[in-house]
Amino acid sequence: MALVLGLMSGTSLDGVDGVLAELTDTRTRVLSHVQRTMPAALRAELLALNTSGHDELHRAALAANALVRLYAETAQAALRLAGVPAAAVESIGAHGQTVRHQPQAVDGSGYTLQLMNGALLAELTGIDVVCDFRSRDVAAGGQGAPLVPAFHAQRFGEAGTDIAVLNLGGMANLTLLAADGAVSGFDCGPANALMDLWCQRHRQQAYDAHGAWAASGRVDAALLARWLAEPFFALPPPKSTGRDLFHAGWLDSRLPDGLRPEDVMATLAELTVRAACDALRAQAPATRVLRVCGGGAFNAHLMRRLAVLLPQVDVTSTAAVGVPPDQVEALAFAWLAWAYKQRRAGNLMQVTGARGARLLGALYPA
């Protein structure tokens, strides 16, 4: 048994989740969970760093330091809540903040960039830090994402049952756990990133609480069809995406004049749900159980629409099987740090398209 901290800040840029967990080959048990809101100035800078800009190397280094201080605060709060000393923790698995994701692009190798300062986090916490999980998979010809399916298989798989896990974070990704034990997964499109952007722009709110604003609007069928014509949706797995594609410019360039903001919001929500449901039907039509995690699992409108579009599927959040939906990704990166320490591969080549299984991460000893 090992005690491991997992720290995750996702594409939605809403904050940091930290979990302290006991991990073994067959079991995960969360001892504490802490959330910290992303400060507005840091959020704005991280969002700006998704595109080229003035003095971005200097700004990126400072943003990484600021993010790591927030990570350290989150980790220390999780330890206090559990009453566990830092010396008892084997490692921290820290995702960092993705600002560019270009696997196999430009020069054939491409890159993925998560802002992070593992050395500073080790210094501030006194705990070994494992980070930079995605780069080795990309170097091996993979997408570098999604990396959560191996953990999903360990935590949510059930022999003899086809199960899908849908993570609705800034982007959406599906893990497919087949009844025979086969595991696959891929990114399926945007989720909270575009919906939050629209809500902030028109209502000055960080997000659409419970999906109430989206539920008040009307889906525009022509606009939905225009968005679904994006070539990414038709690509076969393995595939991954992020703000490099689904950003404000993508949204604004495809918006007709004259639509009510609430109707655009309703259509954005429907895009999230349709893309996920279409992908599930195409790749795993026998699935009868869908577990939803990420911030989108708290969006009642999204959950209702998933249930309507998948009438033969039992749609629930991961809380139904003992893991609150806002803990899953941080717990996955705790598991990836544990896998690194165990010298076990963290990727699945059938998910990412890498040339083989690889040990993921870089270690910064305390």
Rank of each mutant, 00 (worst) to 15 (best):
2 A>W: 14
5 L>H: 11
9 S>Q: 07
13 L>S: 04
14 D>W: 02
17 D>G: 12
21 A>Y: 04
27 R>P: 02
28 T>Y: 07
29 R>T: 13
34 V>G: 03
40 A>D: 15
42 L>C: 11
46 L>C: 06
49 L>H: 05
55 D>V: 11
58 H>S: 13
62 L>T: 13
72 A>M: 13
73 E>H: 13
80 R>S: 15
82 A>N: 08
84 V>F: 10
85 P>Q: 04
86 A>T: 12
87 A>G: 13
89 V>C: 04
89 V>D: 04
97 Q>W: 06
97 Q>V: 01
97 Q>Y: 06
102 Q>F: 07
103 P>L: 02
107 D>E: 04
111 Y>D: 08
112 T>F: 00
113 L>M: 11
113 L>A: 09
113 L>N: 05
119 A>T: 09
131 C>M: 12
133 F>M: 11
138 V>S: 08
141 G>P: 10
144 G>I: 09
146 P>C: 05
147 L>Y: 04
153 A>P: 08
156 F>P: 03
160 G>L: 08
162 D>C: 09
163 I>P: 04
165 V>K: 08
170 G>H: 05
176 L>S: 07
176 L>A: 10
179 A>K: 13
189 G>S: 10
190 P>Y: 02
190 P>F: 07
193 A>L: 14
199 C>E: 06
199 C>D: 00
199 C>Y: 01
207 Y>L: 15
215 A>T: 06
217 G>N: 00
220 D>N: 15
222 A>K: 13
223 L>Q: 07
229 A>K: 06
231 P>T: 03
232 F>V: 12
233 F>G: 12
236 P>N: 14
236 P>M: 15
238 P>R: 11
242 G>L: 10
248 A>K: 05
251 L>G: 06
253 S>D: 15
266 A>V: 06
269 A>F: 10
274 R>Y: 06
276 A>L: 02
282 A>V: 09
286 A>I: 06
292 V>N: 01
297 A>C: 06
306 L>G: 06
309 L>H: 15
309 L>E: 14
316 T>L: 12
320 A>H: 10
325 P>H: 01
325 P>G: 02
327 Q>A: 04
328 V>Y: 01
328 V>S: 01
333 F>V: 05
335 W>Q: 03
346 G>D: 01
348 L>K: 04
356 G>Y: 10
357 A>L: 13
358 R>G: 08
359 L>P: 02
360 L>T: 08
360 L>M: 12
361 G>L: 12
365 P>D: 11
366 A>Y: 10
